[in-house]
């Protein structure tokens, strides 16, 4: 063992003894056609923590998020290189089944996008396609616990068979979270989940994110500094496709190393 590793081990031990790594991106470059959107990003995602990705629009934070469950695959002109691992496995390995990956790494989008089906069917969608349940009572149980975990069950228990699109915006977003956790993912990616919601619905979703941290690893992209400060344990700052700095949220917000982070957080640009 050389000095450097010793120092790193020591740093991990002193900083947060129980933290383990869930996902890790190293040397990630992303291209949309000719245009490069991400430059050599190295970022670790720690288990059972909320990692916030912040930065001005177009800085690549959503792009990085979408790399984590290979949603960029659906865009024809998008190319990704570098390595992203989930529990040490390279998720861009050709042997990896993207269907299984996305069952383990779920996603919630900026705009609530419930399917035009009933509330029940929205939540049962994932379990159905992955064959997680077979009897009606098993499905009922999954739907109920997922809705409960998403803090929505009490509001909708009397109208499970009404269309999910009939809910309010905040309820729709929590329905989407329930839909994502119905397949028991390990990581949940959230792409500005509150940007289409009013402050009260936002507060509910933020509270929910904090509760979900116990069982899931969460990565959230947000434009709201306050939100990042409220919900996350670690924060990564992106700018123009580069990862500027990454660290515990407290430190990033009180004593950032990089001037750009300082400027962005205090509202001098962005």
């Amino acid at each position: 063992m050389n000095m450097l590793t010793d120092a790193a081990v020591e740093a991990v031990l002193t900083e947060a003894p129980k933290e383990t790594l869930k996902m890790r991106g190293s040397g990630v470059n992303v291209f949309y056609g000719e245009k490069q959107a991400l430059f050599d990003v190295n970022l670790d995602i720690r288990e059972n923590q909320v990692t916030a990705l912040i930065g001005p629009s177009g800085c690549g934070k959503s792009t990085f998020l979408r790399c984590l469950n290979r949603m960029n695959d659906t865009i024809d002109i998008c190319r990704v290189n570098g390595e992203i691992t989930l529990d040490g496995e390279d998720i861009y390995d050709p042997r990896i089944d993207v269907v299984e990956l996305r069952a383990r790494v779920g996603m919630v989008f900026q705009k609530p996008n419930p399917f035009p089906k009933s509330i029940y069917e929205n939540v049962a969608y994932g379990p159905r396609i992955h064959g997680l349940a077979s009897t009606k009572s098993e499905f009922d149980a999954i739907v109920e616990t997922s809705l409960q975990k998403a803090g929505l069950f009490n509001e909708v228990k009397d109208r499970l068979h009404e269309p999910g699109t009939g809910l309010s915006g905040g309820q729709q977003q929590r329905l989407c979270i329930a839909r994502a956790i119905a397949v028991s993912p390990e990581v949940i990616l959230m792409d500005e989940p509150c940007s289409a919601l009013d402050p009260i619905a936002t507060a509910k979703v933020e509270e929910l994110i904090d509760e979900l941290r116990e069982n899931y690893t969460i990565v959230i992209v947000t434009h709201s500094m306050q939100q990042a400060a409220r919900v996350s344990q670690r924060t990564a700052m992106f700018h123009l496709g580069h990862l500027v700095e990454e660290g515990p949220t407290d430190k990033i917000f009180t004593n950032p190393d990089d001037k750009r982070t300082q400027d962005y957080i205090t509202g001098r640009f962005g």
């Binding site: 659906t74 996603m107 969608y125 839909r179």
Partner: peptide, 22 residues
């Protein structure tokens, strides 16, 4: 909307499942 497809793909649905179910 594309968001329906994204939602389905993000659940780990295949293209065929997305077409038939959503």
């Amino acid at each position: 909307p594309q968001s329906m497809r994204d939602g389905s793909f993000a659940m780990g649905a295949t293209k065929a499942e997305t077409v038939t179910r959503v």
